[in-house]
Amino acid sequence: MSVSAADISMNGSSSGLAVDQKRLETLHRPYQDFRRRTEAGGAWRNLPLEVAHHFRRYYFFNPPKWRVWARTLGSGDRMAPSFASIGAVRSGTSFLSSYIFQHPHVVLPLSKEISFTETMRELMAHFPTLAAQRAAEQRNGGAITGYCTPVMPNPLWIFLAQSMFPDMRIICVLRDPVARAFSHWRWDQKRFISRKTQDPHWKGFPDFETLIEAEKATIRGGGMEPHAFSGARAGYLRHSIYAPFLRLLFEKFGRDRVFIVDAAEFFRDPRSTAKEIYAFLGLPEVEPLVIEEQNPGPPGKLDDGVRENLAAFFQPYNEDLYALLDRDFGWGAAR
C-alpha cells in the first residue's frame, strides 16, 4: 500500500482523530493475500499461503467457513451494522471500502463482503462483539460497524436487509454503465472464463461483443440473459441498469438514508468523497489517507464502435436514472 509521509503528517483533524497506519495494513493484506494465492503455482508452494489465510484478522470476501462457524459459538452479543456500502461488481466497491473502513470509529467486520443468503446467526458472526465495541468507544470516542458488498442489481438483498436492519444507512456507488460492464467482463475473463475455454466443452463461449448482443436482444425481448460469472445472477448489461434497484431501495429505506456516490468523482478525489460519507454516517471529521486501488481489474481497451453501441443501448436506462435522482452523470458523453 502506497501512503506518503506527507499524507501521514496531514492526517490530523479538528476532532483529534487520525487514521491508524496499522489499520491500512490490515485492510491491504487480504488483497495481497488473494493475489499471491491466485498466482502461486503448485500445492507445496501454495501451502504456507493457505495456512496464513486461515488466520487473517480481516478478509475482503469468503473467510474460511470454520472461522465463521467458530464465531457463532462465541458471544451472541454482537454489533448490528449501521451501514452497508453497495454497488454492482467492478464499480469501485472495494476501493471505496478501504476509505470507509479507515475511519477510527468503524470497527472492522470479519469480512468486507458478507453473503446475505446466510442464516442470521452466521451473518451476525461476521460483526464485532459488544466488548469490541466498548473497547473502541473507550479508545476513540465512538464505534459503529458495517459491511461493503457488491449486491446490485439483486432486489432480494433489499428485502432481507430492510427486514434485518431497517435503520441501516446505505452508500451506493454507481459507475458509468459501459465502463463497468466491460470491466466486469475483463475481470471474469481473467478469473474464470479463460480457464474454462481451455476445455473443449467451452470452446464455443462467445466473445464480449457477441455476448452483449445476445444479452441486449434478450433484455429487449423480456427473456433471460446469459449470466456473468461473478456478481448477482444477471448479465453484464443488466448489472449496469441501476434505476429499478434504486427505486425499490428508496421505497424500503427512504431516500434520505441512501447516499449516492458517482464512481468517477470518487476516483478523481477519493478524500472528498470519503469525508462526505463520514458526515452522512454521523462520524466525526477525519482526514483520510490517499491509498492505491487494492483490487484493480486486468487491462483492456474497448473498441470505439462497441462503446458507442453500448452507450446508445444504455441511454434510455441512464435517462430514467437521471430523472429518478435528479442528477445527470454525463454517461455516454463524448470523450
Rank of each mutant, 00 (worst) to 15 (best):
G141T: 12
F250A: 09
K216Y: 03
S98I: 02
D269E: 12
Y278E: 08
P200C: 07
F127K: 05
A5E: 10
A43N: 01
L27W: 02
M124G: 01
S272D: 05
R169M: 04
P299L: 01
L283I: 03
R36N: 13
R71F: 04
K22C: 00
A312Q: 14
K301R: 13
P63N: 07
G221M: 07
S115R: 10
P244N: 11
P64T: 07
H53Y: 13
G41D: 14
S272P: 01
S82W: 02
L17I: 11
S94E: 00
A312L: 09
L310D: 10
P226L: 08
V89W: 15
F60N: 05
V106E: 05
E25G: 10
Y236S: 01
I193Q: 04
T38V: 10
L130A: 10
I86C: 11
A131I: 03
F267V: 12
T197D: 03
L302N: 03
V151G: 02
S91E: 00
R121Q: 07
S97V: 02
L108W: 07
K203W: 04
F267C: 11
R271C: 06
G231H: 07
D269N: 12
T197E: 15
Y242L: 12
E285Q: 13
G300S: 04
I277M: 12
Q102C: 03
K22L: 01
G305R: 15
R36E: 15
P153G: 04
F266P: 07
Y31M: 09
P177R: 00
N318D: 08
F83Y: 15
A179R: 11
L174I: 14
I241P: 11
V306I: 15
A84R: 02
R271Y: 03
K203E: 15
W157A: 14
R29Y: 14
S15N: 00
L130Y: 00
A234C: 09
A234T: 08
D188W: 00
G330A: 05
D167C: 05
H239T: 06
P104R: 14
K275L: 08
L281F: 09
E293W: 01
R169Y: 01
G76D: 02
